[in-house]
Nucleic acid binder design. Sequence first.
RNA 1: GCCGAAGUGGUGGAAUUGGUAGACGCGCUGGACUCAAAAUCCAGUGGGGGCAACCUCGUGCGAGUUCGAUUCUCGCCUUCGGCACCA
Length: 807
Amino acid sequence: MSEEYDARRIENKWQQYWEEHGSFAASDDRSKKKYYVLIEFPYPSGEGLHVGHPRSYTALDVVARKRRMEGYNVLFPIGWDAFGLPAENFAIKTGRHPREVTQQNIRRFRSQLKRLGFSFDWSREIDTTDPAYYKWTQWIFLKLWKKGLAYKSEMPINWCTSCNVGLANEEVVGGVCERCGGEVVRKVKSQWMLKITDYAERLLQDLETVDFLDQITMQQTNWIGRSTGAEVDFPVYSSGGKKHCMKIFTTRPDTLFGVTYMVLSPEHPLVAELLPACENAGEVRKYVERAANKSDFERTEVVKEVSGVEFRGITALNPATHQEVPVWIADYVLISYGTGAIMAVPGHDERDWRFASRYGLPIVEVISGGDVTREAFVDIDRGTLVNSGPLDGLPPDKAIGRMVEIVEAGGYGRASVQYRLRDWVFSRQRYWGEPIPMVKCPSCGWVPLPESQLPLVLPEVERYKTTDTGESPLVLIDDWVAVDCPQCKGPARRETDTMPQWAGSSWYFLRYTDPHNDAELASQKNLKYWMPVDWYNGGMEHTTLHLLYSRFWHKFLYDIGVVPSAEPYKKRTSHGLILGENGEKMSKSRGNVVNPDEMVDKYGADAFRLYEMFMGAFDQPIPWNTRGLNGMNRFIHRIWDVAEKVSPTAEESRELTTLVHQSIKKVTGDIESMKFNTAIAQLMTLSHALNRRDEVRREDMELFLLLCNPFAPHVCEELWERLGHDTPCAGEAWPQWDEKKVRVDTVTVVIQVNGKLRSRFDAPRDMPKEELEKNAREDAKVEQYISGKTIRKVIVVPNKLVNIVAS
RNA sequence: GCCGAAGUGGUGGAAUUGGUAGACGCGCUGGACUCAAAAUCCAGUGGGGGCAACCUCGUGCGAGUUCGAUUCUCGCCUUCGGCACCA
């Protein structure tokens, strides 16, 4: 079969074969054991695929192919996360409909992916912009609304003053508009919100039930940001004698005796309530206004400069000490966390200390161990309570619990848990997204569209740009906006906001289990069989938001009986970014984008896939280096050459058999732990060993091909066929190693003298310690290092080394 | 500032229940094939020294534990990632 290796011909042939035979279509036959392999579905951008995308796809394609060979019924689907800003911005610029542009991009992505030979089940392809798909995205929204988990609220958005457009957080770079460099300010808009905070505790707790990479679990935990402490009610009096209640949250109730002032956030409702009774209302009002006009950028960027204003004529009473303390307003206290108000303990909180120092407020020490005249003493693990009545003498951790008891007994507070996690801002004032299926009726308020009217299809518009008031272009289509109220049939208006890109991606993995179902988002039968996802891999950049949002939706769907498991993903891993050849992030603007098409044209898909997996540790970021593909090309040629040496007269070599079985073991384990680079290194070592022989046994070659198949499937199928098989190697069983054959007969034992390597000898495996020591002592080279010295100690590690300590 | 990960040849990276540092690639050097180039094949390749067998230094820096440390402990330095006035 002497013939040149021709990547293009072979790859076309086998891709066509797989397509014609539906080789990788998942069967819904529930009698088989299943395995669901998931990659993050791509956003089909106008730039097309770049070499970063296939890193994750190749890795899980390797896993999927291995699982099939292990006898699993594998679901490895693909689809398009196709709503999103770039298509809309492109539409604004060119006037072309985002749908048209998106479909064109999808076609391009699809053909690019097909060339790489991934074993996707293409019959289950989904597209988030397809009304048949987003019908169910809207359906989930209605369910959320009915359970009280969707609500409208005034929220500040990023507003570009020169584009007159609302921006997503990721479009604000360094405080200015990413596209035009214009000033970005906060603008308050009424927004749909989803109450993810109701699920905070479960999203945190259930991390213990899944197998996520440690780093991912940690990031989720940090993002949820659980803190325990206490809520304490401080009575507040104005000069008129009227009593108000100021509720604060603190993680350090042990410092309650050190409170010297109180602080309200400028947005706190109590501010308006107290304003008429205070002596400097004008000053306070001015401060509140100034804080409101500050952008988030200003408010957080100028970290060191604290500011605030005292509420003169207002005092708060410390319920524990019955001491009067002043009340201030300062923008270092955030309305969005805790209760929007704090008790200030400048002796033991850095921010309070800074503020107290600036405004000359008293600083009281209630935990000894530091020097509160110089800085706040915040070390919770050291120190002793002082000046704190019943807490005196206690260490802080004990005092916290004690104080909570006192506060609860006194009836002015309670133990409390707070989360950093905020509710999810769910609406966008944009065109290219799922319409939110809600109607605003002047008499009934917000009314959901009946489920029978879904999908609510995105109407055609003439222009895609947002309006000058920052509303979505949909607001201009009068005959779409005007609608009868589903409840009272009176005139009403549709919601014109659309959903964020996160919506469609929060449940797409469910749709893959039953992608063409128009009665349910997916059948119970299929969900029960396929869910949860067994292995999900994606970018580190999605480990907080996307993962959290989709886990939230999944838990909600679980609560209403739609999905069978509380968690969507059993196992989640992440890959490192592929950088440009210059080591910078790959992007069109940097001009360092590498297109996989060119690589496949030149080297073929198999070489490309091998390089993606071989180039470095899978979880680390790594710069692309096209020259590395040469090595993969050589490797494939070597596989080809070895196949030509297969001969019925070839004899078994004990040494080679050992290497083959070692390779089976190594490759099997390395794929599971995503050490694809070392798996391929092992295969290269094996290829060299095979190639050194004049003739190769057929069974050795076959085992080698089966091991290579997940990485370089085209060439393996071709050679498999040339060896005379009429069924593909993708359908063969994954090889098993024999532990007895993995072990070598002869080992090299090294001899050290005082820890330095001096000599070595070969010995049969498991030679007794005494004999190893004897061999070492009699070694000629060792002689010169120990002659004339006293041997103090000899360390023998069987099958490894002998270390002689002499002086 | 807080949390986390990592620093190994010219280069990407291997090796950790402490036991031969640099597997496997890229690049480079020499050779084969070719009219020539590309591709492919063979050999060599951490630094310094030696004709050589060999010697010596070497895993960010400095200490420590150990017969033995890339691996463990302590203290620094640097890089990357996440969070960041979260009370």
